[in-house]
């Protein structure tokens, strides 16, 4: 139970958006393997504070893998080596004694580095503002059961809707593309009758916004799907493209 490992950490430190950053090197001894990666960083920060060094800033909230707040890149992989897992749910049992871990923030021009490993993903909000909703005012909904949706369709829509907006897709994409994020929302809504109504305007507007925010173009590396904590499929990207073609042809 109480097995522990020693690690070498190479952590990106950067004061704020304007300054340039660099790597700092820390040794972590006797890290219990049952704790999570963020708890390991908690220990690091406690040690640093005691030594009179400012702790490493990193973001986290729910620590259950659902809020999408946490996230950084470990040895070149967003959210680390474990598939379908955010860093808060990544446990130290997946690492070996003596490992060197290079920890970098999610890098993409639209994600400004706030400090150290903390980035601002507000540009995702802008993409949603461009049409990631159903235009309905409160109180206008018809009886919930008056809209029939087949179980399989509902499940598929859910698969797309499961996105937590953590930004790992962008971080892992060689082009820093937000295609997976954007398409997941487009795809969620177009698979439901409620969302279908606005499909054409939505897809055009959201895709344009995604470009405008400075994200790259998807060139089908599929790395996003592999690092996505919710396993969101690149099928959504295909759906978005089909939808865009339809919106042009019609």
């Amino acid at each position: 139970m109480s097995k522990s490992i020693n690690l070498k950490l190479q952590v990106w430190r950067q004061e704020n958006e304007e300054t340039s950053g660099d790597f700092h090197y820390y040794s972590m001894n006797e890290v219990p393997v049952d704790i999570s990666f963020l708890e390991m960083l908690d220990i690091l920060n406690e040690n640093l504070t005691k030594e009179g060094v400012e702790p490493v800033s990193f973001d986290s909230d729910c620590r259950e893998g659902i809020c999408g707040t946490c996230g950084f890149v470990i040895n070149g992989i967003a959210h680390g080596p474990q598939a379908k897992t955010t860093v808060c749910q990544l446990h130290m049992r997946h690492f070996n004694d003596g490992d060197t871990l290079v920890i970098e923030p999610f890098r993409a021009t639209p994600f400004k580095i706030v400090r150290d490993l903390v980035v601002d993903r507000g540009s995702f909000d802008k993409i949603i503002q461009a049409g990631g909703y159903v235009s309905i005012n409160t109180g206008n909904g018809p009886d919930a059961n008056s809209i029939l949706i087949g179980k399989d369709d509902a499940e598929e829509a859910f698969d797309s809707a499961a996105c937590i907006g953590c930004g790992a897709c962008v971080a892992s994409c060689p082009n820093a593309s937000a295609a997976l994020f954007t398409s997941a929302k487009i795809s969620h809504l177009l698979q439901l009758p409620q969302g279908k109504v606005e499909e054409r305007a939505r897809v055009k507007s959201m895709v344009d916004k995604m470009d405008e925010e400075g994200f790259g173009a998807c060139s089908n590396h599929g790395e996003c799907e592999a690092v996505c904590p919710k396993g969101i499929s690149i099928k959504n990207i295909a759906n978005m493209r089909r939808s865009l073609i339809k919106s042009i042809v019609k």
Binding site: W12, F23, N75, S172, S177, G214, S219, G231
Partner: peptide, 23 residues
Amino acid sequence: LVNFKSRKSRYAVSSFAGGKSKK
């Protein structure tokens, strides 16, 4: 060109996630 601009600061380590990745 656009893609290059979308990540002005590059990663020190780049890797392949494996699994479902097609990178």
